[in-house]
Write a protein that binds this DNA or RNA. Structure first.
Lengths: 347, 347
DNA sequence: AACCATACCCAAAGCGCTTTGGAAGCCATT
DNA sequence: AATGGCTTCCAAAGCGCTTTGGGTATGGTT
C-alpha cells in the first residue's frame, strides 16, 4: 500500500493524506481521523527512501566505528553505547546506520556518507588526540557529535564525555589516602583522547602529593584482559613493585587481578586496584557490593544523551554546540585497602 | 553534484552517464572512461535514496538486536559479529542498519522494516527455541538469515551456527577422560536455542558415560561474570560439589574462576573448567597458550559468512537456503587437569 | 544503391513521497 | 450583492536516480 493507493481508497488527494498524516494544520479534524484510521487499517507505512528523497532528510544517523587494523578489535563499550543511542533514535523516528571501517580510509567514509546523503549526521567514536575528523566534518558540513573530546582543537563542536581527568585524580588520591606510594597506571592507548586525559589526572595527583612520576609504573595499550594481566605480572615482578594499580577498564582489571592472584597475593590486602567502570551490561562490577573500587559512569546513558544532543544540533543548526561532561561516581569495593608495610609481603 | 549536473558537464544525457557508471554495455569504452574520470574529478556519489527509489532495492541489511527488558543487556558477542558482517557489507556496497528493540514489540519492527522498504533483508540475532520470527519473516516475505538455529521449526531457512551440541559433547567427554564424574554446567538462558543445544550435548555425554543427570549441577542464566561467580560459589559450597565446570561463555568462566580462587582452590588442579570461547577481540583466552581449555569458534567469522549467505539469498531468491554449521576447535589450556582423588581437598 | 545490423546515444516516464501555488466553498461584513 | 477572509482541499512539480522505448549514425551486405 502506498500513498496513491491509500488516497484513492479514501477519495482524497495525496496532498491531503500526506498532510493529515504529518500533522499539518490545513486538514479538518474529521478527515484527519478518517485518514489515520485508514492508514492503520491498511497498515500503511511511507517508504523511507521516497520520503527522504522528497524532504532531503535521511532520518538516519551514521555511526562509524573505527577498527584498529593492527588489533582487529572493536571497542567493547560499543554495544552498550549504541543500545543507549538506539533508544533515542527509536523515540525520534531515526534509523541508525553503522559503518565499520579500518582507520586507513575513514575520510572516504565520512565524505561518502555526506555525498550520498545517506545520513543527517554522525556520531564520532573513539576520538584521538588532535583528531582530524572534527576538522573534516566541519569542513564538509556534516553535523556530528563526539563521544569524548579532542584535545588540541580550536573548533567548537558538540560532545559528551565523562570527566576523565577528575575521575583519575580522585582514584589516585584515594589510593594515596590509603597510604600507597607506588601506584601503577594500566591505561588505554594514549593516542586516544580519553586515555590521555586519564593519565593527566593520574599525574596531577602524583604531583599534588609530591611523588615523582615514574614511567616504569605506567602502561599504555589496548584494554584487554591479557594485556592487563601481562602488564601487572611484569610490574609485580619488580624489586620494588607497585602496591596499587589504576586500570582504565574493568576488563584490564580482571587481568590485573589474575596476575595478583597468580603471585599468591590477595587483592585488597597486598595489592589494591581501582578501575574505571563503564557499567557494561554483561560485565558488571559485582552485584550489590562492588568487587572493584571504581570510578564509574554508564556508557549506555552516554549513548542516549549524546544521540539527543546530535538530533538537537541537526534540528537547530544555528544553536551553539552542546558540551556535556558527566562526573563519575566513585564506589568503594573489595579491591582496595591500606598499603601494606614495606616488609609485609617481601617484595 | 548530481547526475543531471554531471551529465551537463559532459555534454551527455543522464541515461548514458548512468549506464556508463553502472557498467551497462550500451556505452563505448571511450565515453565510459570519460564519464568515470569526470565522476571521480567532481566527486560524484549517487544519492542512496534516489537510487533506492528508482531500483526498488535498499542496498541495506537490517540487524535487529533483541534486548531483554528484564536484564537491559545486549549480547557481548554482538560487537564482534557485526564487525564481521560489516566487512561483507562494505565489500558489496551494502549499508548496515541497526534496530535495538525490546522483545515486546519485535514483530512491529520487522513489519515496519518491510513496509517502509528500508532494508533488503535482515539478520536474526539470538534465536530462541521455537522462535516465532522465522514464521513471521517467511510470511511477510522478508529475506533473512539466522545467527544460530531454531529447534522445532518446519520451515526451511538460511542460517549459520556453530555445532553447539558436538562442542559440548566434546567438552564433557574430555572431562570424563580426565576422570571427572561430577561436572557442572553453567549455561546461558535455555530459552535460547544455542543454550538448549549445549545442554543436550552435555547430557548426551553424561548418558554415554552412564552418569545420571543431576539438575543440581546445572545452571541456566544470563552469561555474566557475576552470575558465573555466584553459580560456582554456590555449587562449590555443596558437600559433594562438582570437580569440573563447563561454561557457555568466557565471561561466565571468569566468574567461575573467581569463585574457585576465592575458596582457596586452584583452577586446573582442584577444579577444572572448560568454556566455550567466541574469540571476542577484547576478551581473548590468553595469549599464545590458552588460559581456559575451550571449544572455540570465531563469532566474527560467523558474521562475515552469514552476511554473505544473506546477500546470496537476496540475489538468488530461488536458490535453496544455505545452511552452515561450523565445527568448534578444541583447545587445551591451563584450566583443566586430572580429577582430584576424593579426599584430596576435603570437600 | 538500397538495406540491415550494430553501436551509441537520448527523451521521457516512473519510483513514492512532499510541497507550492492555487481553487472552491462558506460565512461574515460592508 | 459584492467583497474579503477562512477553511479545506487538490493538481502538478519536484527530489535524483534507473530504465523503457526509441532515434541516428556507421559500416558491412546484397
Amino acid at each position: 500500500m502506498n500513498l496513491k493507493q491509500l488516497s484513492e481508497q479514501l477519495g482524497l488527494s495525496q496532498t491531503t493524506v500526506s498532510r493529515a498524516l504529518n500533522g499539518y494544520p490545513e486538514v479538518s479534524a474529521a478527515t484527519r481521523h478518517r485518514v489515520e484510521a485508514a492508514a492503520k487499517e491498511f497498515n500503511y507505512h511511507p517508504s523511507t527512501r521516497a520520503k527522504g528523497l522528497a524532504t532531503g532528510r535521511a532520518l538516519a544517523i551514521g555511526h562509524v566505528i573505527p577498527m584498529s587494523t593492527k588489533h582487529e578489535m572493536v571497542n567493547p563499550v560499543f554495544g552498550d553505547f549504541i543500545a543507549g543511542a538506539g533508544e533515542t533514535y527509536a523515540r525520534n523516528g531515526y534509523e541508525m546506520i553503522l559503518s565499520i571501517v579500518d582507520d586507513s580510509n575513514e575520510d572516504q567514509i565520512y565524505r561518502s556518507l555526506k555525498l550520498r546523503r545517506a545520513v543527517d549526521g554522525v556520531i564520532v567514536h573513539g576520538p584521538r588526540i588532535d583528531d582530524p575528523r572534527i576538522a573534516l566534518l566541519s569542513e564538509i558540513g556534516m553535523p556530528f557529535a563526539v563521544h569524548g573530546q579532542v584535545t588540541h582543537n580550536a573548533l567548537p563542536y558538540t560532545f559528551l564525555d565523562v570527566d576523565n581527568h577528575d575521575a583519575f585524580v580522585q582514584a589516585t588520591d584515594y589510593l594515596f589516602d590509603l597510604g600507597h606510594q607506588r601506584i601503577a597506571l594500566i591505561n588505554g592507548l594514549e593516542t586516544m583522547d580519553f586515555a590521555y586525559r586519564r593519565r593527566s589526572g593520574y599525574e596531577a595527583s602524583l604531583r599534588a602529593h609530591g611523588v615523582a612520576i615514574d614511567p616504569a609504573l605506567m602502561r599504555s595499550s589496548e584494554m584487554t584482559e591479557v594485556i592487563g594481566y601481562e602488564s601487572a605480572r611484569d610490574l609485580l615482578a619488580f624489586n620494588n613493585g607497585p602496591t596499587a594499580f589504576i586500570c582504565a577498564s574493568l576488563i584490564s582489571a580482571l587481568g590485573v587481578r589474575r596476575a595478583i592472584e597468580e603471585r599468591g597475593l590477595v587483592m585488597g590486602q597486598d595489592v589494591s586496584v581501582v578501575t574505571h567502570d563503564d557499567m557494561l551490561s554483561y560485565l558488571q562490577n559485582g552485584g550489590e557490593t562492588p568487587i572493584f573500587t571504581a570510578t564509574r559512569s554508564s556508557v549506555r546513558t552516554a549513548g542516549r544523551q549524546l544521540a539527543e544532543s546530535l538530533l538537537h544540533a541537526i534540528e537547530h543548526p544555528n544553536n551553539p554546540p552542546q558540551k556535556t561532561i558527566l562526573k563519575c561516581e566513585f564506589v568503594v569495593g573489595h579491591s582496595t585497602g591500606p598499603a601494606p608495610r614495606k616488609d609485609e609481603h617481601g617484595l
